[in-house]
Design a protein around this nucleic acid. Structure first.
Lengths: 197, 197
DNA sequence: AATCAGTACGGAGGCAGCATCCGTTTTGAT
DNA sequence: ATCAAAACGGATGCTGCCTCCGTACTGATT
């Protein structure tokens, strides 16, 4: 028996079915209406009562975290690929874009993520993925610094913040051209002036 | 008769009193609870009914814009001072900080400001101040570019976005040190490498 | 001073969403 | 087939939004 399975010994059929339906519906609603979507509507469309939704996911953040689980895993997988590249500068750049995409998955997502990153609430379900991302970013940054591609004094957390705010702006309907300008601006900010090959 | 006075000829005493009370109370509530504060509570504390509040300020944005009026004027005044400086680079930097402070006046303010800046809704009361700020920023940028302090290709709007997102991050409780790092990062991004005095 | 018409007031009311509680139903185990 | 634990779901109470309309106030007019 794996650790993720039941500790007692009863994985009720109900529970799994409802949980799956809720996750599926919630993802659709988050996609269409953003993270602020009506949880009541999600429950109704999933064919369960509000009580059931709240029992499975006590807070909006818990539901969000569960829905994001899949995407988080994909992101981590992408990181593995990215790390394969020899070029630390290129790797960092790709990683930042990957994070930005992740943050942009649903409209309004950066808000709760920032709240979780600040992380005075240790039981916020979004804190864990955030910490993972920050750490991963920091590793990329350090690698790129060692290779002389990134200024000293830049931390992973700084670029995490930058990616998060870029995603926030993106989610607010700014045109792609302006976004690219902003990304370029930020890249100019962290890049080492004279890269040493 | 000035243009800002009545066009017909009746400035009812009621109206002025209530409007003033609403603005005063709203500012306090925005300060304490952010831009999402309960308008019902504002009305109640101002001693008027909800109807009166909504007649004076049909939307939350209208109320926000009215409350921000004073601050906007201060900001413009500060701009005048800043322009006096001969140093365009220093002027730009100060201007960006001034804007950031303005955006940080109330928690959650960047959100509606961004929505207004994107500006497909021409009757959004926040659009006007936003456009003014963008234009002003662009002037500072161009001045600094002429003096060779800022890269070509940087637009005022880009730095407006940057300031807005910095304020957003700030409003989400990030520590001052990280903010300073981010500001430095952005500054490194727009500054010309070899300034020509 | 008294009247009048226009204006503004304010609260009741309808609506939507959140979150909880508890009587009823489902489920796996025996 | 029976049972107790576990899960369900909807009724419920709450808060906030926004509107509508009978009532009250105000400034102008005589």
């Amino acid at each position: 028996m794996s650790a993720t399975e039941q500790r007692g010994r009863k994985p009720r059929a109900d529970v799994q079915r409802n949980r799956a339906a809720l996750l599926e519906t919630a993802q659709r609603h988050f996609l269409q209406h953003g993270v602020g979507t009506s949880l009541e509507a999600v429950a109704k469309e999933a064919g369960v009562g509000p009580g059931t939704l709240y029992r499975h996911f006590p807070t909006r953040e818990a539901l969000l975290a569960a829905v994001l689980q899949t995407r988080s895993e994909e992101l981590v997988a992408r990181q593995a690929d990215i790390e394969q590249l020899g070029d630390a500068a290129e790797a960092l750049e790709q990683w930042l874009r990957a994070m930005e995409d992740y943050f942009s998955a649903f409209s309004g997502l950066p808000e709760p993520l920032m709240a979780a990153a600040r992380a005075q609430e240790p039981d916020n379900p979004l804190t864990i993925p955030c910490d993972i991302l920050i750490t991963a970013t920091d590793e990329h940054v350090q690698a790129a610094q060692s290779a002389g591609h990134v200024r000293a004094g830049v931390r992973g957390y700084d670029l995490f913040l930058a990616a998060c705010s870029t995603a926030w702006i993106k989610g607010n309907g700014t045109d792609e051209e302006s976004l690219d300008r902003l990304r370029t601006l930020i890249a100019s900010g962290y890049r080492q002036r004279n890269a040493q090959p």
